[in-house]
Amino acid sequence: MEDKFLVSFWPHIYDKDSISRIMWTVFLCLILSGIAGVYFFGLHALLLIFVAIITALTTEGLIQYFRKKRITILDGSAALTGLLVVYNLPPQVPFWIPIVGSFFAIAFVKQAFGGLGRNIFNPALSARVFLLLAWPKYMTTFVAPAGSVDALTSATPLTLFKESNIGLSQMGLSYWDLFLGRRPGCIGEVAIIWLLLGAAILLFLRIITWHIPFSYILVLAGLSWMFDKNGLFKGDILFCLMSGGVILGVFFMATDYVTSPLTKRGKIIFGAGCGLLTFIIRRFSGYPEGVSFSILIMNAFVPLIDRYLKPRIYGKK
């Protein structure tokens, strides 16, 4: 009898959008930023990207095989997770770091909870935080992009701002450098222009909505501007938005369907919470960047947000 009912996970809405169409669209929108990353940081970055994606696909396939589930490695979700894992890594990490990261993301964060649609936390971000706590030595060593003055290890703009409190011009960078991605940072987070282009396509195709990015950026930029450590209303908004992983996190990871609220009001609260936490972590904690932590913490609140902001059922009070 039980077999005759198809029990599937919410939301139960039918549309021409399918998982694989959405996932591969997001994947393609992210590719540009990866190409820029490879251009700036060299072929090692390309190797890392391939290793991460292949590991993600293999892990997903093996787990589904052993759990006797339908094998869905071509739906793009595992490939997307692998790509996002590697986008969050510094460009010079050893090749086994993305292997561990992708494996952790798929096996522990996604499949251990039951696979696509059931994970509580964003797999790629959890993998990043796991790697950051596991091998801080590798995960906090950055290199300057090729073609800049010194191609050796150097700190990210946010680390410099946190530790030495120097402005952008003293770092030898301009807004234009940040916008194009000519700065030390993670592989996929530096090229703001291509990330924004990808995000614009996703917004245009209505794959993501404006609610989470809008409230996230508004709260983070507002707070950073108001409560800068050099005094009230002295914060540098463009620097705060373009110097870390904000653009990548806001448009491509905070908006993950599985780990963000369903309703519009919920999304706005979720984004605002992420923005507030990012600001608090950047300003007061030991870490220069807080995007991944804050999105993960807010992921934990998503069930609560969904529960208390349930839309009123028509006809009920």
């Binding site: 050893p94 561990v100 796991f130 706590l133 596991a134 091998w135 801080p136």
Partner: peptide, 10 residues
Amino acid sequence: SPCAIFILPP
């Protein structure tokens, strides 16, 4: 290369 997270609570 030790994976420091394993001696931390997580």
